[in-house]
Amino acid sequence: MLCRALLLLGLSITAITSQAAASKSGEELYRQHCAACHGYDGNGGVGVPLTLPDFQYSVTNNYLKATIRHGRPGRVMPAFPSLSNADIKALVKYIRRWAPGKPFRYPVTPVLGDAKHGQQLYQQHCMACHGPLGEGGKGTGLTFSRPRDLPIIAPALNNPGFLKAASDQFIKATLMNGREGTPMVSFLKQGLKEQDINDLVVYVRSFEQNPLPKEQKPLEAKEATIAFESSYDLKTTIANLKDAAIGNNFIIIREQTLDEGLVEAGKENPQQHIIYFCNFGFLNQALAIDPRVGLFLPCRITVVEKDGKVMVYALNPSRLSPLFNNSELNKLCHEMNDTYVSIIEDATL
């Protein structure tokens, strides 16, 4: 009896809560996962606008689904591998509310044309905005990164996420019609012939064959923390680190214990000592590329004495670029990595 009752209880909890999970509405999902970048109203921000009629009527539901699932690797737009199919469907339905009506349907036929000619046309008509390799403009969306020379930054076309989501016919329609209200104009109206546009589509499709250039590849995830043992005592290590930071063109901006502000004043543990140092030019440059990296700046090194050992810890900047899904940060992260290692080595060896 008891076990039956429990089984039933278990089953009913299951039923109730899985219903609750399934009823997580498209709106809730959108607010939680998308609004930060695309805005509550879908008008764009870090991400491109999703509301424009020309966009809405030119994309298929499958394009939207694939874009959400795969994201745009290295181009800020994250992949959402753990959303369920039902969640993604709910999201698409929610996004579609902004432009009610039937989206365009495309024939699945691939577009045929001359990639060589397409390349010439690309260099003439597209490269200025979408970049020489189709890597997209500097920054993304409406508001990300400065300075901005366009109201909307051109998306990356050589992006594996984009190429996976976009059919030939969709790319063609985008070039034929343009997107009113964005810098992307109709190239038919610009005087190109339909065959030229076919050639361009074939060229864009050919990006699939070229491996992404090294600087565009997302960095591989590594250990999150750099740790070194110091051969000096706590005091000397701290002094050495400060000297080394200054020697590397940084200003020491602050020192504190790890627990300062958490425990009563006077009760802090002096054996966990944080040094903050900054190069404001570098900080400004980093925030201009991706304002989110402020989370890990200014630079910080923590010195810890425990059981007679002095250890030096810093976050591993190479771990950050994949976290932000922004390959424009790769170079910066490498630089920061080298800086940390050289300062810590100078100070501890």
């Binding site: 089984l7 278990g10 089953l11 909890i13 299951t14 996962h33 609004a35 930060a36 994250p78 959402f80």
Partner: peptide
């Protein structure tokens, strides 16, 4: 079985493997 089923579907926040949490 009952307990495990119950636990599996315990109400809570959905587990989404986002690298960054962002909110507007």
């Amino acid at each position: 079985h009952a307990v495990i089923l119950g636990l599996l579907f315990l109400p809570g926040l959905p587990v989404i493997a986002e690298d960054l949490l962002m909110a507007r």
